[in-house]
Amino acid sequence: MEKKQKLLLGLTSTPMILIYVMAVFCLIAALRQPAFLSPATLINLCRAGIFTMCFAICEMVVIISGGIDVSFPAIGCVAMYVPMWLYNHDMGVDSVFFFFGVAMLIGLVFGILNGVLVSFLKLPPLIATLATSSVASGGLIMLLGTREYTSLPPSLDALYSVNLITFTDPATGFKYPLTILILVPVFLCIIVALIMKYTMLGRGLYAIGGDKNAARVAGFNVIVLQFIAYIFCSVMASATAMIYTTLMHSSTTTALMGEEMIIIAACVVGGCRLTGGHGSVGGTILGVLLITLVRNNLNMLGIPTSWQTFAVGLVLLLGAVLSSIQARRIEKMGKI
């Protein structure tokens, strides 16, 4: 009896439901467009998912710690724009380390700002990071102006041309290269998963997300832990923004704005609770996969791409409602 119940619970758990939804999505897409079932789709999906995945992991860490960060797109924009601006004004060296170093340094500065506002001054995280966002974005354009850098410095261009594998479509002869930068989200996921599970740092983040007061009584340093979450988020988001510039050949002051919606959607769909303490790397990966699938392959279902925003909203809504229903179901099962 108990085994049966456990099996049923497993089959109707949130991750499994995500997998069903994705399977159905792919099935319909494949039936409508047989071309969907080709390595090319997979490679495109991977390429499109690189940034979403990295950003989502950053956001996940903050959400688990009981906060939220909506400032990373703006911070990312500063981090991708400033190094290019410096380089184009002859103030930088042409080195991958320089670009990524400057980007991450910028991330660090804004991460500290977020950390001070949220953990030290105890401001509501949403409003505080929204303020950081406008400070970053407004300040950037005010000081450095707005233009688009579309040509990469040679060092980044070299990075861009390194591919893991290249798939050539036998029918059309199109080439689909898979960039080496795909390894960044892969390693990031592995490392963050290990940290969250096997270090006191990770468990501390879960602990403060679950109950701040209990964490304080137990002897966790709540302020430091929150600081780490926000700094990690900003620094990694900045590095991700630099990857974006490399892959997209573009660096503008507004490229990433609005991205926070999709990222938060991916986290929530993947099982993070905005109240903190819940969420996992595995779930977030599923959430990102679903969102990326919906974003990039809507037309495969015969829905015009102009409905993409709406579709993402719908996925987020259903994800939120689903997790609420799941929580209620577990509550109904009674206390033990």
């Binding site: 599970k197 096997y198 270090t199 006191m200 740092l201 990770g202 468990r203 879960y206 602990a207 997300g209 679950g210 109950d211 007061n213 209990a214 964490a215 009584v217 137990a218 002897g219 966790f220 903190g276 303490g277 819940h278």
Partner: peptide, 26 residues
């Protein structure tokens, strides 16, 4: 009780001890 609702029973019991020992890994 000052316990963590989102963590497992085992972790709730053992976490404080690990903290006291200042261990870095779990």
């Amino acid at each position: 009780f000052a316990v963590f609702p989102n963590l497992t029973v085992a972790e709730n019991i053992a976490l404080n001890g690990e903290l006291k020992n200042k261990s870095k890994f779990v």
